[in-house]
């Protein structure tokens, strides 16, 4: 028998598979299809202080081996997440969850984290710093070491739970941002968020998505994600949650060999609602095939 368990920031997971934020709602749509307790954990829909409708539609464009989305962080807001969504999720999922938090100012991040912090089921906070900073000229927090650092240190003071910072790949050197987050008190790094991309509709001769650009995800980005996980693993001592185009148990092992402790699965859930379940089921067999006894031993093994 192989051992699929891993430990992320002191919390043990039965396996490293975590559906990525924004691709799994608050879990209960998928709980109608299978018992989601077989997952390692799940990262909830990105939550902001106030409810957000998000961007105009169309928000989705297809790409070779992937998709672009510009949903724009649609969510019901921290209060409704706490009072409606999480109680509903609790009925179908009993493990610690990752609370994904977004904000458009440092104050917003802090308020949302403070509000959600009372929920015992939240094991980790995953802070999405890819959002534009309204006080910083719209530049994303995640593209500047100093902006990233200021968000992380402010949120650090708001919670004692493990803080995982989700990084944007749309930067010159992702290791600089990762190091800034580490220095500011982060407990872990998750990467990558989507890559900025676009498609143009030949009939209308206009961008497909209403917001013109959006985030590319899916197997197309896997090699880029893997490379960045590798680089960040060499740059910081923090545990890494790897994601970006993962769609098989083999991809999970590859991500872990590059340096990931746990692995998020995103776009795959949208085209195959059973993707995470099938990866979890297949993992022991693929581990055995490659002579892996304890999955937690292979993190960074390719370095």
């Amino acid at each position: 028998m192989v051992n699929t368990s891993v430990t992320l920031c002191g919390i043990r997971l039965d396996n490293p598979i975590i559906p990525a934020s924004g691709t799994f709602g608050f879990g209960y749509e998928f709980a109608e299809l299978y018992d989601i307790n077989l997952l390692g954990s799940l990262s909830i829909k990105g939550t902001t202080k106030e409810p957000r409708f998000g961007n105009p539609t169309p928000r989705i464009a297809e790409c070779p081996s992937g998709m672009i989305n510009s949903v724009g962080l649609q969510n019901p807001g921290a209060e409704a997440v706490l009072k409606e969504e999480l109680p509903r999720l609790k009925r179908c999922f009993s493990k610690p969850i990752m609370a994904n938090v977004s904000g458009f100012s440092t104050e917003e991040y802090v308020t949302t984290v403070e509000r959600l912090d009372t929920e015992a089921q939240i094991g980790w906070f995953e802070i999405n710093i890819s959002c534009p900073n309204v006080h910083g000229g719209g530049m994303s927090f995640g593209t500047s070491s100093s902006a990233a650092s200021s968000v992380v240190s402010a949120v650090r003071r708001a919670t004692a739970k493990p803080l995982i910072i989700k990084l944007s790949p749309n930067v010159t050197d992702i290791t600089e941002i990762a190091k800034a987050c580490e220095a500011a008190g982060a407990d872990g790094i998750s990467l990558i968020n989507t890559l900025l991309g676009m498609r143009i509709d030949l009939r209308r001769k206009k961008p497909v998505v209403a917001n013109r650009m959006g985030g590319l995800s899916g197997p197309a980005v896997f090699p880029v994600a893997l490379r960045m996980v590798w680089q960040v693993y060499e740059a910081v001592r923090l545990p890494i949650v790897g994601m970006g185009g993962v769609c098989s148990a083999e991809d999970v092992i590859e991500m872990m060999l590059a340096g990931a402790t746990a692995v998020e699965v995103g776009a795959a859930n949208l085209v195959d609602p059973f993707a995470c379940r099938d990866i979890v089921r297949k993992l022991p067999e693929v581990m055995a095939q490659y002579g892996i006894q304890n999955l937690s031993d292979i993190t960074g093994g390719a370095h």
């Binding site: 924004g22 998000g54 539609t57 928000r59 989705i60 998709m67 949903v71 609602p273």
Partner: peptide
């Protein structure tokens, strides 16, 4: 009709605003 990501309510790709709040065209 709307461009959809998943078609079953997970991605919020096809939301529209109604008099009773936001709804997902697919779900």
């Amino acid at each position: 009709e709307e461009r959809m990501g998943c078609g079953f309510g997970a991605c919020m790709g096809c939301s529209c605003m109604t008099k009773y709040g936001s709804k997902r065209i697919c779900r």
